[in-house]
Simulated assay, not measured.
Amino acid sequence: MKYRLVKYLLALVTALGFVTSATAQDRPLAIGTLPQGSLGYAIAAGVAQVASANGEMTLRAVGQGGSSVFIPALNRGDFDFATSNAFEAVFATQGSGNFDGQANPNIRVAALLQPFEVGIMVAADSDIRSLEDLKGRPFPVGYARQRLVGVMQQAVFDAAGIDVGELDGVPVPNFVEGAKLLAQGSVAGVMLAPGSGVVRQTHAQRPVRFITVISGEAAAAQVAEALPGSYVGRVEPVERLPEIAEPVDLIGYQYALLTHADADPDTVYAVVKALAENKAALIESHGSFRRFDPAKMAVQVEGSTFHPGAIRFYREAGIWTE
């Protein structure tokens, strides 16, 4: 185990030119995130750019195969920060959901960044209009490197009263591979986030559209119980989202900047302060930050824990509620 960790760190030195640790201030800090092309990576890159430009530190986004890789690395302190979502912070800390039996007790929340929606997209010319229409169709499952996607997928199918076994499951490691299969016509749909680079790339190869995945109050309540802090995210058609052909109800949640318990409090403080005070720069880095609200950076989700460095800033800003 020790040898593998050393080998991993040396690989980071070679490939990225830096080593991550909790306390060093004279080298770039790493933000573990999803692969390039994902909206998660774009958000992490924006955070890195703005925090680097407005604080006494340098950050870099480091794309990984999925949160099942970078969340445990963050828990160990191999990364300084990570981008994910509020309910994954709960799962990771408690050892539930996609981290069932594998608790990562050092995970801490630094900031909530912006609302986010995830749902299922299908080919635009498909006859699929609802989750029911996916029964018997080839559909991505497994998500060995992105178990969270599988957990979200399970939540919406359970809420719709559909046994995942009724799908013709096609094992995939992550949503990127699922999107490739959709573009090829090998699967009927895939779970993704509207507006992401992967969605745009898929749409360019084969036009796609999203379908509603949460229908009715009972389904909404069941999904919210399975995914703490989530809600129904209504997405309306707009010019910049050609994949949204009509209003659809997707899984809504807050995307978050995470850190770990041993991260330097002054560094965490400086990062969240830089973000809170530079919304315009964040929007310039990526348009999704138009939805960023500094007043909501400290909204708490039961089961997750904020880092003391972040709490210090939020108290000074008057937005910490405890």
Rank of each mutant, 00 (worst) to 15 (best):
R129V: 13
A220H: 10
L282R: 00
I71R: 01
L192W: 01
F313D: 01
Y41D: 08
A124Y: 01
K296M: 12
A220T: 13
D168R: 13
G287V: 15
V301Y: 08
G65W: 03
V50C: 12
S304C: 03
D100V: 06
A86W: 00
Q201S: 14
L131C: 05
V223M: 04
E243N: 05
N104M: 14
N85R: 01
G169M: 09
R234W: 05
P294E: 11
G63H: 05
G97F: 02
D293H: 04
D264P: 02
G142K: 04
Q184R: 13
A89M: 00
A193I: 13
N174M: 08
S186F: 07
I214A: 07
S126Y: 11
V272K: 02
E243A: 06
A188F: 06
T267I: 11
F313V: 06
K296G: 05
A263E: 07
K7G: 09
L12A: 11
D266K: 03
Q102V: 10
R240F: 13
V213K: 01
G77E: 06
A256Q: 06
Q222I: 05
E225T: 15
V248K: 02
L131A: 00
K273T: 11
G318E: 10
L192T: 08
V109R: 04
V47S: 06
T14N: 14
E277G: 04
G119C: 06
H203P: 05
D125V: 04
I251P: 08
G63P: 15
G229L: 02
A155F: 00
F99Q: 11
S196E: 13
V223P: 00
Y269W: 04
A144D: 10
V223A: 03
D168F: 08
T33E: 09
V19M: 10
